[in-house]
């Protein structure tokens, strides 16, 4: 049986790990390679690196950071940030990524997902979906897609977009709640439920997870993996202790 993955996320800006609240007020959290190494030793199942300023700067995630992290870890590495073409995806794989996530560019040109998926396989094409509650703007699911690191509201319905994106070939949805990001108030379970109904592929819950109870609830709502950042960077939980607790809560994790 497949285990629930626990994934620390490294938001990277100018070669350093940063973390904020609702994608703003970013504070330095340390060196990406040192953090990745620590998390693998603690039992992380995968590392996600999101270069949060890449799209705004009009460039691809920095190869140097990816290479340094790759050399340190023997677990999967998913990288996102500034991917606009299939060739960009290939370049990230060459730099040391195993899987590539796309957000803004996929919304602007959905064929990118089809291209990445047909060349590198569905398991390699991750849809990074940033969503916010939007009760009054006509989105049937109640959730709206955001792009450009949360600065741009698209008016697209999050569930409808997730369904289309997986039909195009996305093999996983990295689902971040903008409202919960960095707040430690728990994952947005309604959001996870809405996307679970829309897509057959794995979902990674992100945004707001602060303790094992939140993670158990996300799994119950339909998540296949749980992602967190602040609680690991700031030492509230080691991944080992978190997994011990998850196991006690009846969640299957790799030990």
């Amino acid at each position: 049986m497949l285990n629930v993955r626990v994934i620390p996320c490294l938001d990277v800006k100018d070669g350093r790990v940063v973390k904020g609240i609702r994608f703003a007020n970013l504070a330095d959290q340390g060196d990406p390679a040192a953090l990745a190494r620590r998390y693998e030793r603690q039992g992380a199942d995968e590392i996600v690196i999101l270069d949060v300023s890449a799209t705004a700067d009009g460039r691809l995630a920095r190869f140097e950071t990816i290479g340094r992290v790759r050399d340190e870890i023997s677990i999967p590495l998913t990288v996102g940030g500034g991917v606009r073409t299939v060739e960009d995806g290939g370049a990230l794989l060459q730099a040391g990524a195993d899987r590539v996530s796309v957000n803004t560019a996929a919304v602007e040109q959905p064929a990118l997902l089809a291209g990445l998926s047909s060349r590198f396989g569905a398991q390699c094409a991750v849809l990074a979906l940033d969503a916010a509650r939007a009760p009054s703007n006509g989105c049937p699911s109640g959730f709206e897609v955001l792009t450009h690191s949360g600065r741009n509201r698209t008016g697209l319905d999050a569930a409808e977009w997730a369904r289309r994106a997986t039909e195009m070939g996305a093999g996983e949805v990295l689902l971040t709640s903008f409202d919960r990001d960095g707040t430690r108030s728990g994952y947005d379970l309604a959001l996870i439920g809405a996307i679970r109904e829309a897509v057959p592929v794995p979902i990674v819950a992100s945004g707001g997870g602060a303790h094992p109870g939140h993670m158990r609830a996300a799994v119950d709502a339909g998540a296949d993996a749980v992602l967190a950042a602040s609680i690991f960077h700031q030492g509230d939980w080691s991944i080992g202790r978190l997994k011990d607790r998850l196991q006690q809560l009846g969640v299957a994790v790799r030990r």
Binding site: L2, N3, D45, P202, D224
Partner: peptide, 11 residues
């Protein structure tokens, strides 16, 4: 019953 793609750690 398993999700496709299979992504993650399995025995």
């Amino acid at each position: 019953a398993g999700r496709v793609p299979q992504l993650g750690w399995n025995g």
